[in-house]
C-alpha cells in the first residue's frame, strides 16, 4: 500500500486592521458565499468568509472534518448576553444563548459546505492555530478523517480601547481581525504538492533544536517565528540546527491572537525561489514550543 501524506490543497484568508468603525461583514458574506447567512454575528460571518475563500468553488468530501480555533471566541455574542443579563436585567434571547456555544460556528460552516464529518472547536492560550492543526493531523494519521477544513478566527469588539484592555495590550496597539483556513486532504505521498509533515508541541529549546534538525532541508528551508516567539532565541536555536533563513509572514501585522494561521497561506503565496520547506515555530510563556512543517 502506498505511503500516505497530508496535502495542503487550498488556503484562504481574511485579514483587516481595525479602526473604531468596524466594516459591516454582511455584504462580504453575500459576495463570498453567494447568499446572505441570516441571524449570525460577526464571529460566524468572519469564519464563513475565511472558509469560503479557502474552499472556493470546490465541493469538499462530505466526510470532511471542521477544526476551528480562536484566541477569544465569539466575544460579541457573549458580551451581548452578559450585558443583557447583568446590566439590563433581561434573560438571554434563545438564539443568542445558543450562539454563545463556541462550536456554533462549526455548525454554520458544516451546513454551508455540506459537511458531516468531525467537528471540533479547540483552543490554547498561545498555540491556538497550532492546536487545531494538531487535532486534524491526529485524526488524519489515525485514519479517522481523510479531509479536514482547519481554521482560526478572531474578531475585534469595539470600542477599541476596551478591546485592547481585554487583550491586555498597551494603549494604541494596532489590532486586527483575522480568519485563516486550510483544506487538508490525505493523498499518495509520492504526489507533488505542499504537504503538512509535522505538528508538534515541544517541551523546550533542546527538543525544538532536534525537531528543526529533523525537518530542515538545508538551504531550501525557511523558518518563521510566531507572534509569541522570541526571534533572537528562535534564531539561535535554529542556527544550532543549521537553519538560518527566516520567513516573515507577519510583516507588520496588527495584533490578534491567532496570527499563526496566516503563516502557511503566506508561504504558499510568496514561496521564495528554491525554498521547499517552511518550519514555523511559536512559543508559550512556559518555554514550550509549537512547531509545524510544510514541505513541497
Amino acid at each position: 500500500m502506498a505511503e500516505r501524506a497530508i496535502f495542503i490543497r487550498a488556503a484562504g484568508d481574511y485579514y483587516a486592521q481595525a479602526d473604531e468603525a468596524l466594516p459591516e461583514l454582511g455584504p462580504l458574506v453575500k459576495q463570498t458565499l453567494g447568499a446572505q447567512v441570516r441571524r449570525v454575528g460577526r464571529f460566524v460571518q468572519l469564519a464563513l468568509i475565511g472558509a469560503a475563500r479557502c474552499v472556493g468553488q470546490r465541493q469538499l468530501p462530505a466526510t470532511t472534518g471542521v477544526y476551528l480555533t480562536s484566541g477569544r471566541g465569539d466575544m460579541e455574542v457573549t458580551a451581548d448576553v452578559m450585558e443583557q443579563l447583568f446590566r439590563d436585567g433581561q434573560a438571554p434571547r434563545p438564539l443568542s444563548f445558543i450562539n454563545t456555544v463556541s462550536n456554533s460556528a462549526c455548525f454554520y460552516i458544516a451546513k454551508q459546505f455540506g459537511l458531516r464529518g468531525r467537528s471540533a472547536f479547540v483552543c490554547n492560550r498561545y498555540f491556538s492555530f497550532e492546536s487545531a492543526l494538531q487535532l486534524a493531523m491526529l485524526d488524519m494519521e489515525a485514519g479517522v478523517s481523510t479531509s479536514a477544513l482547519v481554521g482560526s478566527t478572531d474578531i475585534v469588539l469595539a470600542p477599541l480601547d476596551v478591546h485592547r484592555k481585554r487583550l491586555r495590550l498597551a494603549e494604541g496597539t494596532p489590532v486586527a481581525e483575522g480568519s485563516h483556513w486550510l483544506w487538508l486532504e490525505a493523498g499518495d505521498a509520492a504526489d507533488e504538492g505542499a504537504k503538512l509533515t509535522s505538528v508538534e508541541v515541544l517541551a523546550d529549546g533542546a527538543a525544538l533544536e532536534t525537531w528543526i534538525a529533523r525537518h530542515a532541508r538545508g538551504a531550501g528551508t525557511a523558518l518563521s517565528v510566531g507572534q509569541f516567539g522570541d526571534a533572537t532565541e528562535t534564531a539561535a536555536i535554529a542556527a544550532r540546527a543549521g537553519v538560518t533563513p527566516t520567513f516573515d509572514y507577519r510583516d507588520g501585522r496588527a495584533y490578534y491572537d491567532s496570527q499563526s494561521g496566516a503563516a502557511v497561506s503566506a508561504f504558499l503565496a510568496q514561496r521564495p525561489e528554491g525554498v521547499t520547506t517552511l518550519l514555523h515555530v511559536n512559543r508559550d510563556a512556559e518555554g514550550r514550543f509549537a512547531a509545524f512543517a510544510v514541505r513541497f
Binding site: G73, V101, S102, N103, C106, S119, A120, F121, V122, C123, N124, R125, F127, S131, Q134, L135, V201, A203, E286, R288, A290
Partner: peptide
C-alpha cells in the same frame, strides 16, 4: 508540563 488543549464543543 505537557501541552494543554481546551475542547469547547458544548
Amino acid at each position: 508540563g505537557g501541552m494543554d488543549l481546551t475542547i469547547n464543543t458544548a
